[in-house]
Amino acid sequence: MKQRQILVNLLIFVAMVALAIFCYTNGKANIVFVENIPFNHEGVTYEAFEAIQVSVDDTAPPLFLLAGDRGTVAMAGRNHVLVIEELDENDNITGTHSISFKNREMKGNVVNVVPLIHGKFPGWSYQLDR
């Protein structure tokens, strides 16, 4: 009886710790810079979008970025979905891209949407020096 009690308590303890770790990794929010700037890949230059609207993991409100702009957003969790909407002069949506990536894939705290949309070219995420 006594031994079983200790075992159960230990199990509860381990479960708590596991849950805590899960919560931490799942809920930890990082500040990420999202930018919309031209990108050069293997000699080909991809232009920045004229105007886009980026929403991260369905959290309102979306970021509004012109060409060359950079914005910040807090990302929580391990998997992210970026919904990028291209806009014309009248702010009408002309095209929508939805891209998902994992925290593990990121190389730093900056995400450039231009290479991301064109097929996740290496260098879409990098570390910004402060």
Binding site: L19, C23, Y24, G27, K28, A29, A74, A76
Partner: peptide, 15 residues
């Protein structure tokens, strides 16, 4: 630690 959402609440409770 900037843990947000329901996971944050749960973590606070566990701590």
């Amino acid at each position: 630690w900037n843990v947000v959402g329901v996971s944050g609440i749960l973590l606070a409770a566990i701590i």
